[in-house]
Amino acid sequence: MSEPAVRARGLSRRFGEVLAVDNIDLDIPHGQIFGFLGPNGSGKTTTIRVLCGLLTPSSGEVVVLGQRIPAEAEAVRRRIGYMTQQFSLYADLSVEENLQFMGSIQGLGRRARRQRIDELIEQYELGDMRNRRASAMSGGQRQRLALAAATIHRPDLLFLDEPTSAVDPENRRDFWEKLFDLLESGTSILVSTHYMDEAERCHRLAILDHGRLRLEGSPEELMGALDNRVVEIDGRDLRKVKNAALALPRVLSAAQQGLRLRVLLEEGEEDPCAYLRSALDGQALEIGSARPSLEDVFVAATLPDSEDAA
């Protein structure tokens, strides 16, 4: 399809003095899982809310599924699903009652609803808690119920706002499997997260920080761009080494991971290992280049000085 699922140009949203989303351009293609990666307060939730038509953009142009937002938001509501950050179904209703309610709000007929609910309960493994109230369910079960409810009308585009923040790693894995199933059945997905492992599963990523779009690309592209800029140092007195490294002009960040110190350097250093070895006077240190991770990408993208560069 030529028209992307979501297109935004110059999207900004202001809350009083605070610019929560600052002049973002986005093209989210169909048939992919697109990730928003960013720390808390980076504007992920605000952006998703604007795209869903929950918030009016302060400026900029937004087209979702071919409809202009917010003017044509009503027309798009039938075709999108939204899973909120907090559980937003009814705690005092059972699994089946919640799904019945959402199904009828979404305009499913009685028979279609019946059939769809059976399908969802099967798909999301909620069979043995059909009549259990949502308040008595675990975090992972509730998450599956929320996903089932958000997709009951088979939306073309699904928004998930930090869907797994209250879920343990194993349930998170299962949850992502469900997302890939949904993708296969034709639903494009936009998901926000602050977990690196989740971000790595996305087809494309947008890294947000302080309301700005810092970087965009596939995880591989983003990590590839940092080749030859990440160095690992092994040795004694790593806390001291860290402070020494941070004082160096070409070092962007240094953080200890277990027994090693991971150092991120500025772009354009021919041989980062040699640079560090000489700069740190590192006879006793073992210095070697490392494969960039998504966390490195994230750190590089959200550094305070990159704000001036951006």
């Binding site: 869903c52 038509g53 039938r78 909120t84 937003s88 709000i105």
Partner: peptide, 13 residues
């Protein structure tokens, strides 16, 4: 308060 409204207003209601 419980966030139900946030979900409800993205539906056609």
């Amino acid at each position: 308060e419980q966030g139900n409204m946030e979900m409800l207003i993205t539906t056609p209601i």
